[in-house]
Design a protein around this nucleic acid. Structure first.
Length: 164
DNA sequence: GCCAACGTTGGC
DNA sequence: GCCAACGTTGGC
């Protein structure tokens, strides 16, 4: 099983929005970056766990955990002129360029794990999301990182890292 | 294939 | 709102 981090702007679609979806499940549409697409299309497998990250907001950070419930299939929003994710330069051969998966919420973290916490943690500051200029919206996460984050979310959520 | 111009992301 | 970093576009 693999672990991922996926970014979303909470003003557009938040973890709470996901919780309100039927079966707490939604399609993860709109990924329009080839590297992220390749992860989605080729490597995200059913049962993989996904850290949901809020970006472009007051306090960016990890807010919840979801899981992959459907593997990659064509993203119809790429062909919908009314969608904000419309691709006006489709592949010349008519092949499908963009894919999406379905994710289901597993749990909301009791408290956000902020980007600043991640950056200040010795074992987490090497995460892709903590690197300057890193814009990839679908990122692989190491099991060790996932385990640490999950532990922090449950056990240590109110204790500053300097004490540990 | 190079690379300058442009558009987007996303922290701050 | 600013702007650095990055990805994409398109002329040559």
């Amino acid at each position: 099983m693999k672990y991922w981090l996926m970014k979303t702007e909470p003003d557009v679609f938040s973890f709470d929005d996901l919780l309100k979806c039927p079966k707490k499940t939604t399609c993860w549409e709109g990924v329009r970056n080839y590297q992220a697409r390749n992860f989605l299309r080729d490597e995200c497998k059913k049962g993989d766990l996904v850290l949901i990250y809020h970006s472009n907001t007051q306090t960016p950070g990890i807010v919840g955990i979801a899981k992959v419930v459907k593997e990659a299939y064509p993203d119809p929003s790429a062909n919908d002129p009314k969608s904000p994710y419309y691709d006006d330069k489709p592949a010349k051969d008519g092949s499908t360029r963009w894919f999406m998966i379905d994710v289901q919420a597993v749990k909301k973290l009791p408290k956000i794990i902020s980007l600043s916490q991640i950056k200040s943690h010795p074992q987490l500051k090497t995460m892709l999301v903590a690197q300057k200029g890193q814009r990839l919206s679908v990122q692989p996460v190491k099991k060790s990182e996932y385990d640490l984050l999950q532990g922090m979310a449950t056990l240590y959520r109110d204790i500053p890292f300097g004490i540990l």
